[in-house]
Design a protein around this nucleic acid. Structure first.
Lengths: 251, 251
DNA sequence: CCCTCGATCTCGTCC
DNA sequence: GGACGAGGTCGAGGG
């Protein structure tokens, strides 16, 4: 167990460059858009060089308390305790962790490469634009990611009869929100162009209430094969490996 | 640096009880609802006793790759490497981490207490129900969290003139979705009761396009003081402190 | 900055 | 287990 002075020095010297992992009995408070508090208990505190501050419990993927990237972290001794402070400028948010007992501090040099995810909605839209007949025989794409006053239309096109078609795409099960979006776009185009377009929702699945809303508003549904997402691929970015296994810890 | 056998043994013996932190040069792949891959680089892998599996980089709050709670973790030697496997049953998802080089493994006994967040939408609704005059002089609450076929109405009430009022509450800036919701509820009640209700959106702020949609549909907006959220408090739960600072690591 | 919307959303809750 | 909606959503992309 490190002395307070050593701990503070160590954290300060690695804040900007390493991912810090602190295992400590702590009391943590969050004040900002909302409020939350944690009683004195052992938690895992993770601080990233981009300012991310997280207090993790033993369950769930999300931290119990956190501050997002861009926050600033401070550490100091107060009343004989080590106190961690994370401050987010806007919106004003503050996380204070009083460390009653510090059992471990590690600093890890971690890669910051982004990873490319394949099979997103954007991929599905791209695939559909390349395969318009999948939507409908004779379908012609006019616009993609078409910005309007009421939002962005995934695909705007015309059917074989020349009628305007609004296509809303979801990569997973579509819910009421998706139908609302589609309705909004159809209404907007009707107002704007004086021509009532068809509205088509494309997704691998749809919830019962969403399907009901769809039908009762004269909209259409096109089920897309779920495996479709696995057919689509993006080029993956290559990064040069920079292994820097330097780290430090107390026991 | 632990031997493969020691590392595997250690991880297996702590999987069910401790939060495991592994610092390693790894190649990681995710296959499931989407796909993603990470090149050989140093990452921080965190495994929680509830099955949560996370691969963290040096930036952002969210893991680069993960599996949610309920997944099962396996570890084994394969071709002289340590391989971590996380499997989610439904939907079928798999994370595979090939550990080219393991520099640190720590097992931490972490509290699993929940924390209560104060200042949620639910809190705001509760406060408004207790202070109906804040919404409008003479406002009377009929229902709260009122379930309908098209969604749950936050507050249903009547104004001083006896007219039905649908209130949609947002704890932060309201966007187009909130207006859509409100529209849906108003339409539904009009269909269902043959009586056109007023629709009121209550939030500390509203986006321009949402405000435009609101006005052009004859709906109303009530700005709630942002500080209101800080006035509301919930009882915080008390947990007995169970400090179990037992952990283990290799250097 | 703000606005908008997708997300392997996650998370809770209620049926 | 599915459906539904909130979230301190986060994060990206565009203006």
């Amino acid at each position: 167990m490190p002395s307070n002075e050593d701990a503070i020095k160590f954290v300060r010297s690695h804040l900007a460059t390493h991912v810090l992992v602190i295992y400590a009995v702590a009391r943590v408070s969050y004040n900002g858009r909302a409020k939350a508090n944690l009683n004195a208990n052992p938690y895992l505190i993770i601080i990233k060089p981009d300012g991310t501050f997280m207090v993790h419990g033993s369950r769930r993927e999300k931290p119990l308390i956190w501050n997002p990237p861009g926050s600033r972290t401070y550490i100091e001794a107060r009343d004989g305790l080590v106190v961690l402070l994370s401050i987010r400028a806007s919106p004003a948010e503050r996380v204070i962790a009083d460390l009653d007992r510090v059992d471990f501090i590690g600093a890890f040099d971690v890669e910051h490469s982004d990873n490319k995810v394949m099979g997103t909605e954007s991929d599905l839209v791209a695939w559909l634009v390349d395969h318009p007949d999948y939507i409908e025989k004779g379908f012609m794409v006019l616009e993609r990611e078409y910005d309007t006053a009421v939002g962005r239309i995934d695909i705007l096109g015309r059917d074989a009869n020349g009628r305007l078609v609004v296509v809303e795409v979801k990569r997973s099960q579509a819910g009421p929100d998706a139908v609302n979006q589609l309705l909004r776009y159809v209404d907007h185009l009707l107002q704007r162009r004086g021509e009532k377009p068809r509205g088509v929702l494309v997704s691998p699945d749809i919830s019962p209430s969403a399907h009901f809303m769809l039908k009762s508003n004269g909209l259409e549904y096109l089920k897309v094969n779920k495996d479709l997402t696995t057919l689509m691929e993006k080029g993956t970015s290559q990064h040069s490996a920079r292994p820097m296994p330097d780290f430090y810890s107390w026991l």
